[in-house]
Design a protein around this nucleic acid. Structure first.
Lengths: 338, 338
DNA sequence: TAGTATAATTAAAACGTTTTAAATGCGCTA
DNA sequence: TAGCGCATTTAAAACGTTTTAATTATACTA
């Protein structure tokens, strides 16, 4: 029903081939003819059919992005940045939300393959969710894939991330140096790479100061939101008396911790220090501004998209990888322990 | 390079036609043949080429969604819900972020048409951004379009939204009834439909109580974030002495207002009442829980997707529309004025 | 036994592009 | 004038499906 190249060609009294060449700015067609064709195309609002084009060209001009969720501030920003970079490169993007569920993720990957995406950006990263069969699927179909935000464990898949181990290491080191000893960590499941990296950083900091690491100080939450962190903190305060600090995996949770501590009658940081992660709005709007670790999401996104396109264009499964450095931002929620 | 239907057909010793029919569960092909073909497809990880399929079928199986941004809690949730509903219907979705910029929005629509999306969901709606030429483009290409979150002014384009006028009307009525008179409104530009509807609600409430509406109480912000609201409130407190209440267009801003008021030495709600909109997390985590208006985003999303598919499937440009009712949630940031 | 209805299969066209190789026309040169 | 090279143009195949109409095989009926 919509106007097609054949129609334009007929009107311009040229062949479809010429019309196609003209539309794509080929130097093969004469200046005069090109102008005539372009004018007609514009007048009739001709819009090439992307499916036909993709089929003929054997490339879709689309890349796929998988994120576990999109409602958190962090992933919202990530998606936004990646989207921008992908569009700027002249590509389309299919965004898919996995909810960290294996079945969903598999469906997504399958859909990506059906759509013949030219590359995939994978943000998720639950050891149990993103399993080998997904990777296998992408591999057999030769779809380049870059991990962003975290890396696929024990593999040399390319990735771009801000060093989570380093970030947590620096944060915990700083806390240890300022006299904290009992540092509780509200984290996610250890199956999630983004948590396991951080735990490594935590442990490394402790070991460097020649201190034991008490595994009971890791509190693995299955939900990473405000309410859950609040309740967890309430329970923690009741069961444990000697807490020097509580750190979390993101800023909303840190805010919840802060509020829970304060409404229990204790003070932040005088009694207990608090720190978050990501440097999102929540750490700034807290009644007591929260110490956090900043990740440059924009930079990470740009690098990830660049790397992916480098692989796509070179055709080489170059095992590039970019590990960016995080930045510790000290605010008022942490202070020297007496 | 990837395996195609022809390959499967060859292996099964049937024609491509039969293979296609089998893959699509047509009753025309015998049980035995179907099984054989499906088995081969599964073994060889055959994934049909969506572009070829779309081309042959003359339908892409894709719908497009435009939102102005994706980093705010509200739109994050909206995108998430719409995505879910669209996928459940067996469709793919292209998400595009317009930044409320006209040029970008035009490009997006053009891309949608190129991709031959079967329908479009438009969330934004700035009178200046979403102009007639966009709508015209969609119309000439016969792409069904449903507005979600707001409606296109002075047109009978189908829409699904939660009544913003009603929400603000109820909020302001409640404030007037509890003795507030000087109610300031931190809103967006009047060009944005979501603001102009609310202003109408505000005015309606005033008029009903037979009070004048002072236009200087509308403060049109060009950014709708925490920092801007904070600074605006600071300035407002300095320039105006008799403020009974400050209401905002979303919850982050209301939180900023609350914090700004409190750090200026005044009390909420004793001195100034505060109210937000959306019932997002910010209104709950405030040091003083904030009165707000709840919009059922899930319900709205479901309705919007349903309506769109109804139009797509019926082929009729049915001018359906759904106006949902908001709910006023009174919390501690508002109280009876002495 | 021929004819017919039914079930299963298939050939071929169509979808709207791109791209390669061939064709055409034209002005030059020798 | 024949031959050549160049600039344009084009025919036709290809991309991987779906779908329609035709074909074949099979069993049943009269």
């Amino acid at each position: 029903m919509p106007i097609k190249l054949k129609d334009i060609a007929a009107m311009a009294k040229v062949s479809v081939a010429t019309a196609s060449l003209a539309m794509n700015g080929s130097p093969l067609v004469s200046e005069e003819t090109r102008r005539r064709i372009l004018a007609l195309a514009s007048v009739h609002e001709y819009t090439p059919n992307a499916m036909a084009k993709g089929l003929a060209r054997r490339r879709s001009g689309v890349i796929g992005l998988v994120v576990p969720d999109i409602e958190s501030a962090y992933y919202g920003k990530l998606v936004s940045c990646i989207d921008k970079n992908v569009r700027d490169a002249g590509y389309s993007m299919i965004l898919s939300i996995s909810n960290d569920e294996q079945a969903v993720e598999r469906k997504i990957i399958q859909n990506f393959i059906a759509e013949r995406v030219e590359g995939v950006l994978l943000a998720p990263v639950n050891k149990k969710t993103t399993d080998m069969t997904h990777m296998h699927l992408l591999e057999t179909h030769k779809v380049p894939c870059v991990f962003v935000t975290s890396r696929y464990p024990q593999s040399d898949e390319p990735f771009v991330m801000v060093d989570l181990e380093e970030g947590t290491f620096r944060l915990v080191s700083y806390l240890l140096e300022t006299g904290h000893r009992n540092i509780y960590f509200l984290c996610g499941s250890r199956d999630v790479i983004t948590t396991s990296c951080r735990i490594s950083g935590y442990e490394k900091a402790y070991k460097e100061k020649i201190l034991d690491v008490n595994p009971r100080r890791f509190i693995e939450c299955n939900r990473l939101d405000y309410d859950h962190a609040y309740e967890t903190t309430e329970r923690l305060l009741q069961s444990q008396s000697s807490i020097d600090a509580i750190i979390t995996i993101n800023d909303v949770m840190a805010l919840a911790v802060t509020n829970a501590i304060m409404s229990s009658g204790k003070r932040v940081p005088a009694d207990i220090s608090v720190a978050g992660y990501d440097n999102m709005i929540f750490s700034r709007i807290s009644p007591i501004p929260i110490t956090t670790v900043m990740q440059d999401i924009e930079l990470m996104s740009r690098n990830a998209v660049d790397l992916l396109f480098r692989i796509i264009n070179s055709g080489i499964a170059e095992t590039g990888a970019v590990m960016l450095r995080p930045e510790l931002i000290v605010r008022e929620s942490t202070a020297m322990k007496a």
